[in-house]
Amino acid sequence: MASSNQKTRKKPYGALLVMGLLSAGLYIFLLLNQASLNKYFAMGGVYAFLPIATAFIFSYVHGSFTGNFWTILGIEASKKKKEVK
């Protein structure tokens, strides 16, 4: 029963695609603009917010993508012990 439920559950292909494209876009931007990014991100002081904000943006976009990635591959948490007591 559990396995049939698993088969019929909708997999997040759309979210994977959107977040995957966004994540790829972020990484392409990062690698194509290395010189200017390094210049501003290393200015220190109030510019310290730049790396912090970037880290949060990447963690949201790429984190959602990687989460969906494993789900699509069928690697999900155990159904038996979701709660720790």
Binding site: L26, Y27, L30, L31, Q34, L37, N38, F41, A42, M43, G44, G45, Y47, A48, F49, L50, P51, I52, T54, A55, F58, S59, H62, G63, T66, G67, F69, W70, I75
Partner: peptide
């Protein structure tokens, strides 16, 4: 970051791999 020491490229590339790993 206040001292301009973070290389954001290194941090984000490592993060790229580690977010796959941490989920697993």
């Amino acid at each position: 970051a206040m001292h301009g020491l973070v290389d954001i490229r290194l941090a984000m590339i490592i993060l790229g791999g580690s977010l796959f790993g941490i989920q697993l």
